[in-house]
Structures are given as structure tokens and as C-alpha cells.
Amino acid sequence: MATSNNAALFDFLLRLGDDQLVLGQRLAEWCGHGPILEEDIALANISLDLFGHAQAVLNLAGEMEGQGRDADKLAYFREAIEFKNCLLVEQPRGDFAYTIARQIVFSLRAYLLWDELTKSSNETLAGIAGKAKKESRYHVTHASEWVLRLGDGTADSHARLQNALDEVWRFTKDLFATDAIEQQLADQKIIPNLGGLYGKWLTMLQELITKATLRMPDPGMFMQLGGRTGKHTEHLGHMLSELQILPRSYPDARW
């Protein structure tokens, strides 16, 4: 049976919104624990933007689903296997180098994706994308500056960031994984064709990494897949048990 456009869009929006939610949660873990006070503030700010995007996108997802679920219901009352975020964002926060490696890989793609989604025929989605694009431009700037500072800083910072880039690289294919649902939405002109994203992303990233005196990770490395179909790493369940504890414990309460 063919998937209806609304159902396809629901699925697509979960991928988009869950990415924002889960990474927002990981970044929030830095609050009060950053390497310097300015960075506590910057990472909290980025986290806050991501939660804002997640809320808007998941509310729209709920509307598309038509079952009366809003962003909170979707965030707090789904199991790990129902989350559609990519594997990259659910990985533990690691050290600051890992956070920065993940931020540059994720934010650069997010910026390019939002830019495309401003052209969506769904006006709500196009509107969210317009605002998110501006914010994610700042996220790219923030991460890029740290890639340069750590890559071209001390021998220690260079080694740490290189190692972190190599670590996150196996999740990059999952970040761009695409399927029949995206194809259907593109065919129906609901979202633009996203096939060109990866190439643009790779070019921009390569340029930055070279400038930071780092090297690109091994392109032949084995790639982990599964996030978009709910096949997650074990980290997600633990994160959700923390995120969801109150509404799950008191399902009748309003907060």
C-alpha cells in the first residue's frame, strides 16, 4: 500500500525533529561544565535553538499524523525504536573535541538542509526552515571557529580533534541516509530533492578541515546505519529514560 503524503511527511518530520531534540539534549549536558564560561553560554544557546526547532517541527509532525499528538507527546511518550534521529546525535557528549567534531558535521548539514527546506511547499515547514537556517548559520560559525582553533592550536588539541573526527565519521552516512519516503516527498514537490546535499557538505567540510591542518577521515571506513529506521545504539534508551522520567512517572500531571 502506498504511503499517504501526510504519513510520509510525518516520518520525514520525525527524522528532522528528533535530530534537533536529541542533539539539544546532549548539548544541554554541557551547561555548567564547559571548558570556559563563554562556552557554557554558547553551547546552551545552541541547545536552546535546537529545542526550539524540535518543538516547532514535532508539533507540525503531530498535525500531519492527525492523532492529536503534539511535540511534548512525541518527545516524552515514544520508545527508542520509534525515534528517527540519526545515530550521530545520540552518542554520549564525550570531551570537547568530540562535541566540536559532531557539531561541525551536524550543523553544516543542518544549515544546507534548512536552506533547501525553505523551498518546501508546506508553508509551515518553509517558515520553520527560514528561521532555523539563520540560527544554524551561527552554529556552523561557532563550530568552524573551534575546528580551526583546536586543529591549528596545540599538538594535543590537534590530535584530540583528529581523533574525534575519525570517531564520528562512521555515523556520517547515516546522517545522509535517504529512502523512498524522501523520494516520494520530493516527487510530490513537498520538499526539494535532497540528493545534492552530501556533495556540498563534503566540499565545505574538506575546505575547513584542510584549513585547520587536519586530514579527512578514511573514506573506506565501515559506516553504521539504522537511525532513520529506529535501529539505534544503546545510548538513546538511557538518554530517553532521563528525558522522559517525569511525564512517564506522572502521566496525568500538567507541568
Partner: peptide, 29 residues
């Protein structure tokens, strides 16, 4: 920032989470 930072990841709604995060961020400022 620490006693409140302790609850950011467990805030009971997205709205509360964003308000709390913004508040703790203000304290850093």
C-alpha cells in the same frame, strides 16, 4: 548554574526545558 543545571535534561516539557536552559544560561552571563 549547577543545582538548576541538574534538572535541564529532566524538565517535564519542552517549554519548561527551554525556559530553564535560558535561565541557567543567563546566570552564566
Amino acid at each position: 548554574m549547577l543545582p538548576e543545571g541538574n534538572w535541564i535534561t529532566r524538565a517535564p516539557s519542552l517549554r519548561r526545558k527551554m525556559i530553564l536552559l535560558a535561565k541557567v544560561q543567563d546566570e552564566g552571563g
